[in-house]
Nucleic acid binder design. Sequence first.
DNA 1: TTGAAAGCGCTAACAT
DNA 2: ATGTTAGCGCTTTCAA
Lengths: 346, 346
Amino acid sequence: MTSQLPTLEDVAREAGVSRATVSRVINGIRNVDPVIQESVRQAIARTGYAPNRAARSLVTRRAETVALIVAGAGDAAEDAQDAFAARVFADPFFGRVVSGVVGALRPRSMHPVLMFADSEAACDQIVAYLRQGSADGALIVSTHGEDKLPARLAAAGVPAVLFARPSLAAPVSYVDLAHQDGARLAAEHLLARGCRQVATVSGPLDVPAGQERLAGFRDAMARHGRPYVLAAEGGFTQDSGAAAMARLLAEHPDIDGVFAANDLMAQGVCQVLREAGKRVPDDVAVVGFDDSYIARTARPPLTTVRQPVEEMAATMVRLLQEHIEGTRTEPTSVIFEPELVVRESA
Amino acid sequence: MTSQLPTLEDVAREAGVSRATVSRVINGIRNVDPVIQESVRQAIARTGYAPNRAARSLVTRRAETVALIVAGAGDAAEDAQDAFAARVFADPFFGRVVSGVVGALRPRSMHPVLMFADSEAACDQIVAYLRQGSADGALIVSTHGEDKLPARLAAAGVPAVLFARPSLAAPVSYVDLAHQDGARLAAEHLLARGCRQVATVSGPLDVPAGQERLAGFRDAMARHGRPYVLAAEGGFTQDSGAAAMARLLAEHPDIDGVFAANDLMAQGVCQVLREAGKRVPDDVAVVGFDDSYIARTARPPLTTVRQPVEEMAATMVRLLQEHIEGTRTEPTSVIFEPELVVRESA
DNA sequence: TTGAAAGCGCTAACAT
DNA sequence: ATGTTAGCGCTTTCAA
């Protein structure tokens, strides 16, 4: 740290005006003589002044900061504590969410404080953080499970927007995908390819996205005269996808089409199929979900259901800002439509 | 937002003491009668008081926040702007870094503001942010290329610690890995396996880690009587690894051992080998680098050189805190030793 | 259009 | 051991 940073006072003295005037120039308030404006600007440049955020926040009551929270029901494993974030980011899907959020925040000159709600204690810390006014609101994306955080934040009157509908109902805004429609796209694609023995590796059934993708898939199949669909539950990880596929294959070696509820599991599915001597898509067609980075780099590249994550993230930010500014008071939901991206796996 | 949050004043009145006493209790300063302490605590609980961070920061001149910066030389692609973060997190290595940093920050009750320095404008914004005192310091991890940020921050007197030595020398602290030692471990493992035609898919040669892993590999091979090592440059991405392997294989179909400078590229290497009808490790042994999530889930699981990322991140945080508190003034470097993790690919 | 002055909520030096 | 008091740097009425 250098000695002492210049303050408004210094700039004002340098420019020969009052603090108030300098403040007006900085905050772009009209009613300032252009000539004075210019001289103030020069004084700012000369002094190398940068406004002190704490002082400003104190009076505006805005932190210009939002909490970007990755929540997951506290895992049983204690030693998994610090690995939580690593596991989360193992799914490129979360990278897309973060990317989208940061991109949408930037032009609004708001900044995200990254927090992981992976334990009860972490939740407490987060609630305290927000109550302190350290952040103006929260953006929450849950990995799975029943998360009490949304309800707690709602109760504390903290503006919040979720990525995906919470399993535990709470009066908060969220953006989400029409999961059932996405699953239908996958089903119809597999059927159109002529698959006869179709199975699905579902997501965890304690999370809405897992349930709905499964339900949507089953419904679509039923509507096409397939009353029964083989299913094995996975946990949205590559390993769990591989394990689920192995179970399915053991009992039904004739499977020729698989819908995996996310790309990571689809990758695991492909590995198991290959190891079983099946070719993708020739012997078994595989459709994933998300359209994350992995879908493009997998071999073969995955046919998948795309979530418009970046748009969804941008909408989260917009809703949150409206809540913060008070232009929107009621919880709101915005549902996006998925899109089928056909590559090589199906 | 509810009406008005309680302040120190409110708590003091409620407890029948002065603001100063309440402040002392909150900040755990001794010299407070236990009885009064207790009554203050109760008053805090009754009022639901939470200290206002802006007010505190204003006087302590501490934000209790650090910038967690992911820097990459501004890519040529303009449209790649908002995808930068997504691409970064496509490498699980960065997830580990973030995980480690957040884990180390938490017990110190500091919070990370996530920022991406992917363009000149973004850098300016970051420097401005830090100069405002919005964060007490910066933790920087670069993806590649010549990054001017460290030098700018050093010049601005902002405490900063880097993950990995910067390509452009700057008077800042950093933690790093003994890359050459890591490459040596890989070389010796391949030789011990009996590989005769060994090649390497290097990282980008404009980043120290890329250069050193290549140099270390060549040196180790030379020391074992192999004066010449086939090499193809990659970009630390899966695709680039695949492309590099394809080039190598086209000219040297007899390659039987490959050292890829990171796990993501090793994965690409394995894909290409498999598609060329080569078995890993039977026909070609492959060693990766990093030991990220991908090394465990790849098929076959990758033998790789592990970076103790979590420890490195913890050290970054410790160094940064010392710089912030002024207990450490000189730039410091801490170098960690890698470790070979033998799995199935070699 | 500009300036003077009153705080925002907190900590810390000083006084008691 | 506790209270009094003076700011921290900024925005924002209110006067001029």
